[in-house]
């Protein structure tokens, strides 16, 4: 019970900070800049390379659903919006692979709207967004096959990935694709991506992707709020550590 109350209080504080920062973002003329994220800058380079080589760009929506690991799937959707906009405007072929069927209409809608937004609705094809399988290793096999057969030039793996990410990344390496990875999962997954990809987004960096790519003031406000929350949490941890280790001294000090 006490844990849930503490969680609720934390959530309310986070919500208040967010709300405050969103309001500040809408009224403030100057917004903080976000530090450079080479992995996101490299997407343009990857799409450009695909155009030069006449080979497709592959974007995986990851292993996340819209119910489990949804936050990472949303990040992947945000990055897809940017990637599809680039492939539409630069004229590269795009392949989006989807594991969970409920993510399929979302990915289709994003790609369709991006092509519409780039003024090239006729370039959009149904086969761009492909549902492969709902099971983990069947999806992996499908993606590896696509990469091998269609010789992708850029491989974008941002979202929820598990042990399978090493297979995606190795398959991409074998066809000489420029690889951009990123996940917030911490098992061996991130280590696999870090080792196999040319560029990698580590943990919380993926949550800054939308703000970084869109430069939207509300999104940047959200990132600032996130940083404030992080500082608050760090402060709480330090206070907790001090109380845990030096509570006796504190008691003596207060009773003097």
């Amino acid at each position: 019970m006490f844990q849930r109350i503490a969680e609720l209080i934390t959530l309310l504080i986070f919500g208040f900070v967010m709300f405050y920062e969103f309001n500040r973002a809408s009224s403030s003329a100057s917004m903080p800049s976000i530090r450079r994220l080479p992995a996101l800058d490299a997407i343009k380079e990857g799409v450009g390379r695909a155009v030069e080589m006449g080979r497709p760009v592959h974007h995986s929506m990851g292993q996340g659903q819209l119910t489990r690991n949804a936050e990472q799937t949303l990040v992947s959707a945000s990055v897809l919006e940017y990637v599809a906009g680039l492939t539409a405007s630069l004229g590269a072929d795009l392949i989006v692979t989807v594991r969970h069927p409920e993510v399929l209409p979302v990915a289709q809608e994003i790609v369709r709207e991006s092509y519409l937004g780039a003024g090239k609705p006729e370039a959009y094809e149904t086969k761009m967004v492909r549902y492969l399988s709902s099971t983990q290793w069947s999806y992996v096999a499908g993606v590896m096959g696509i990469m091998q057969r269609e010789k992708v030039a850029a491989n974008i793996l941002i979202g929820a990935f598990f042990a399978d990410c090493i297979l995606f990344a190795e398959a991409g390496s074998r066809v000489g694709a420029i690889q951009i990875g990123g996940t917030a999962g911490f098992g061996g997954n991130l280590a696999f991506l870090a080792v196999c990809c040319d560029y990698c987004l580590y943990g919380e960096e993926i949550y800054a992707a939308r703000a970084y790519l869109t430069k939207d003031v509300f999104q940047i406000g959200g990132i600032r709020a996130q940083d404030i929350c992080k500082l608050l949490m760090t402060g709480l941890i330090i206070v907790g550590l001090l109380l845990y280790n030096y509570s006796d001294w504190l008691y003596v000090l207060l009773s003097m």
Partner: peptide, 8 residues
């Protein structure tokens, strides 16, 4: 990463 997830 958890704070990022909560913020999102």
């Amino acid at each position: 990463a958890a704070i990022g997830s909560i913020a999102l």
